[in-house]
Design a protein around this nucleic acid. Structure first.
Length: 562
RNA sequence: GGGCCCGUAGCGCAGUAUGGAUAGCGCGUAGGCCUCCUAAGCCUGAGGUCGUGGGUUCAAAUCCCACCGGGCCCGCCA
């Protein structure tokens, strides 16, 4: 509803500006603590018209014609240089009526987007760095879908790199520990194999031999590669499910190699690009990037970046927008990718780059075994959540407590990852991550549980939520504030999808919960007089829907009690 | 050395795209609130040279320049 209000304010303001004969560029509207919407336009008119901003603001307000009926605006006043607009009762009423299910049901279909996230190498379990990628990506997918886009989520599976050769080589000497989760068993072998190779460098030839046989299409080797990748992948999928990551399509890198797409890309770049040769190696000089990009090795084999190029060319041809969620370490690669795609005449991706997650002891490395796995973290955080639930709700049975602990634990983890701007480098501290009592997600989930409990109690007393209520009775500041916040949910999705900034959604979710808590404290529902009770019940119902929905955008489950 | 990013209260952050109303929030800290729908809540304090120095502007955390501190990256790894 807020968007409609904003549009009307814009229209009315423009009419007034014309009537008062001001020439203007924009109407300069902002959300404000002093009003529902405020305009700063008087500042920019002050210089050309040689009058003080306050006088201009006053003048504009005098020319304002707020419609008498069928309007969302209650009033507009000049406060110094600012013009403050306020919503009316019908705005509040319409906001509540409009909340029936999901945020801003997308009326028109927008473009198709292929969004890539995580794409971790299948040489071990997801670690906390991948977690940041996966969760930012997943929330972005949810936001874009709500904004009306058709989104396909892809995970690019690097199934032909050197690290898979090392896993295959290692698996021939060391057995997988079948008692372990598959991806962890793969990591054990990978780490042990790397150690053996470090200690005994002549063994490296054997890995090289494996790689040559793979490239040559040796069936036995190809099959071993696939088996290793598949094994690891099954473990990663399990982690995704536990994390509540929405469905992703795994795209196998080797597909593109087999289809000949990589060769096509090299040929095309040779024709269109600024090519340098060093022996059999082929280098591509890209405009504005100092370092040339190697697109073919001296031994004639392809590189990751070239294969990635083939993949991106395919993506670009199969959708309207390509979005990649990449780590900061891939920033240069992403620029090269974009330039090379430009050469190929394919649309370039939009990048969401997030800064690194490191441990107090330094950077993460799967190869060195220096990482904290997503599974370990989920395990511990759910356990921590369980002790918190148990502390408060010893009345609940075991399975219920476990269920709440799972929702709270995973929720806290997801919120933690998404609440910070992707630009910020994170030093992961285990104790801090586990300190979920005061964390964002449980706070929001708790508000939801409180709303639910009011409705549950109301039902027991025979007070049904009905459409038949008088919104005009909701006059308490905390009631109005809650409705205002609810009215902005659609706007929040719209902005987050336009900016590809998911941490703003996390912040808004928290603010909505905060506002609900104030209402909860100030406005008794069940003991209120009958008509007011009906209105408040309707408001609680709307808040419940809003809270659940905004949590869902964050991929966080909403417990009915906690 | 070069490119990109970060620097805001003891700690962790929002605000910077589009400069404007007393710079917000969480944790921690000092204190207060459960005869009343769940206290994982609410309220009141203390705590700030917005890294430093210049510049632009009526107005700078926000824009420009330089510097300091930290991170990531810099041709045949992925």
């Amino acid at each position: 509803m807020f968007l409609e209000f904003k549009k009307e304010v814009e229209r009315v303001l423009k009419e007034a500006l014309e009537k008062a004969s001001y020439e203007y560029k924009g109407v300069d509207l902002e959300e404000s603590e002093h009003a529902d919407l405020a305009s700063r336009i008087a500042f920019s008119l002050a210089r050309p018209y040689k009058k003080s901003p306050a006088i201009i603001a006053e003048d504009i307000v005098n020319h304002l014609a707020i419609p008498v009926e069928n309007t969302l605006i209650a009033d507009a006043v000049a406060v110094g240089p600012y013009i403050n607009f306020f919503v009316n009762d019908s705005f509040l009423q319409k906001t509540l009526q409009a909340i029936t299910g999901e945020i801003a049901p997308p009326e028109e279909k927008r473009e198709k987007i292929i969004l890539e996230h995580t794409s971790a190498n299948p040489d071990g379990p997801l670690h906390i760095g991948h977690l940041r990628n996966a969760i930012i990506g997943d929330v972005l997918v949810r936001v874009l879908k709500r904004a009306g886009y058709e989104v396909e989520t892809q995970y690019y599976l690097n199934d032909m790199g050197r690290q898979i050769a090392v896993v295959v080589w290692g698996a021939e000497r060391l057995a997988y520990d079948e008692t372990k989760k598959a991806d962890h068993a793969v990591a054990d072998v990978y780490i042990a194999a790397n150690r053996m190779l470090e200690e005994n460098s002549e063994l490296l030839d054997e890995v090289g031999e494996l790689m040559r046989r793979y490239e040559a299409g040796n069936e036995e080797v190809v099959q071993k590669y696939e088996a290793a990748v598949q094994k690891c992948l099954s473990g990663i999928q399990t982690s995704f499910e536990r994390l509540n990551i929405q469905q992703v399509v795994f795209v196998w890198e080797s597909e593109f190699a087999r289809r000949g797409a990589v060769k096509e890309v090299i040929e095309e770049l040779k024709q269109k690009g600024d090519i340098k040769r060093e022996g059999a190696a082929i280098l591509l000089q890209l405009e504005g990037i100092e370092k040339a990009l190697v697109i073919q090795r001296t031994d004639g084999t392809s590189l990751y970046t070239t294969r990635d190029l083939a993949y991106h060319r395919w993506k670009g041809k199969n959708c309207d927008r390509v979005i990649d969620v990449f780590g900061k370490d891939h920033e240069l690669v992403s620029q090269q990718l974009a330039k090379a795609l430009e050469l190929l005449g394919v649309k370039s991706p939009e990048f969401v780059i997030f800064a690194f997650v490191s441990l107090p002891s330094g950077s993460l490395s799967t190869r060195a075994g220096r990482y904290i796995s997503a599974d370990e973290l989920m395990e511990k955080i759910e356990e921590q959540a369980y002790t918190e639930v148990d502390k408060r709700r010893s009345d609940l049975d075991e399975s219920k407590k476990r269920e709440i602990a799972r929702k709270v634990g995973i929720g806290a983890l997801r919120y933690d990852m998404v609440k910070v701007s992707p630009d910020k480098h994170i030093v992961f501290d285990f104790d801090d991550a586990l300190d979920i009592e005061k964390k964002g997600a449980p706070f929001i989930q708790y508000s939801h549980a409180r709303a639910y409990s009011i409705l549950r109690a109301a039902e027991e007393k025979g007070y049904a939520v009905s459409e038949d209520y008088n919104a005009a009775l909701l006059k308490e500041p905390s009631e109005i504030e809650l409705i205002r916040k609810l009215s902005k949910l659609g706007n929040i999705i719209e902005e987050a999808s336009a900016n590809l900034k998911v941490h703003q959604v996390a912040k808004s979710a928290r603010e909505l919960a905060e506002t609900f808590n104030l209402f909860y404290k100030d406005c008794p529902v069940l003991t209120a007089e009958a008509e007011l009770r009906k209105s408040r019940l309707a408001l609680v119902d709307c808040a419940l829907i809003g809270l659940r929905d905004v949590l869902d955008v964050l991929g966080i489950e909403a417990p009915d009690e906690m």
